[in-house]
Design a protein around this nucleic acid. Structure first.
Lengths: 185, 185
DNA sequence: TTCAAATGCCAACGCTTGTTGGCAACGATA
DNA sequence: TATCGTTGCCAACAAGCGTTGGCATTTGAA
């Protein structure tokens, strides 16, 4: 049981600013100075509370996919449920965007991304796939489609992908994910 | 008709080194000094021949998807043909990898990626899609899957995606691309 | 009231970066 | 041979970066 510190508000402000900057600019273009300015504190405070830039990123990019429990869900609705859930997670929390932007050049961020999909999508695939041994492959394929969609929509901003509304996106992507999850090759 | 210059070999060496570094490290982590060292010349030569780092990248990331002519191809083989072609392009030329890594943080690279898919996949989709007006959307969806696959395989290196052999990758992805190209929602 | 810990800012360090200007060697042309 | 553009390197610049140490102020407990 740790008692709340007076600096908790500062720590939180730093973390929020860091998430925003990392999401918008990526790891190397987001500077400690800019993050500190956003949080209205001195850059040296960032160092005191988080040690260095890498550890700050590690703290700011803490993320959980919060995969839903799909037991009892009709098998043919799994794709729709999953795509809908992923879009929710992407749009409700910019941390995943920060993670994606950083993972392209930061090995530590890439490793976290690997753990995220292997550890959270993998088990879900193991539950519903015809052969549980294929679960990692199926999780990887789902990652390729959902990360690719996020890349095109939020990072590259391909106009036709940006302008897809939520329902159209689900209608297009759900059958793909459904097949990666339960279909046969 | 421009006559060949004595420095053409140097220019080519710089360009080759730049492609390699940009592909491996991304735009900001690839330094002019490192590129010059790889090319075994002085950093100032890079500036003389390419002006600045952005123009060097623009020259190094010149790329064409070389989309094949698919007229006369059986409609149901389009997905396979396309996926196979994309994998060839990815594996045969690291320029596309450099472009992807840079596009995540460099607006100019992102713009080039947008033009690449709108200008080269779009027209192909317009030929074979049920409704040509949907061509941009279909091209965007194909981009989301193929870029997502490349992201997971070459950049993030998700183990199950890396270990997919060529045939398995085509078998999984081709139906997806086929549906994005010719299927209905 | 006293005092030590916590909080915050300032100024500066050392390093790397992209970029520039000048100077020597070379090579083709006259 | 004399000349002039080309090719290349060296040294240095200004700017920005992550990071550090010291000093003032505030806070909460004794």
């Amino acid at each position: 049981m740790t008692s709340p510190r007076r600096s908790d508000a500062t720590r939180a402000a730093i973390l929020a600013a860091a998430r925003e900057r990392f999401a918008a600019d990526g790891f190397e273009r987001a500077t400690i100075r800019a993050i500190a300015a956003d949080a209205r504190i001195d850059p040296s405070m960032v160092m005191r509370y988080y040690g260095n830039k890498e550890r700050l990123f590690a703290a700011a990019a803490e993320f959980d996919l919060r995969m839903p429990d799909l037991t009892g869900e009709p098998t043919d609705r799994l794709g729709t449920r999953l795509v809908s859930h992923f879009i929710n997670r992407w749009e409700g929390d910019e941390t995943l965007l920060a993670l994606l932007r950083a993972a392209v050049t930061q090995e530590a961020a890439a490793e976290r991304m690997r753990l995220l999909f292997a550890g959270q999508v993998g088990p879900l695939a193991a539950q519903v796939a015809p052969d549980p041994a294929e679960a990692p492959t199926r999780a990887g394929l789902i990652a390729s489609q959902m990360l690719g969609f996020a890349l095109c929509r939020f990072v590259l901003r391909l106009p036709p992908v940006v302008s897809l509304d939520r329902e159209a996106a689900i209608a297009w992507l759900a059958p793909t994910v459904q097949r990666y999850l339960t279909g046969t090759i």
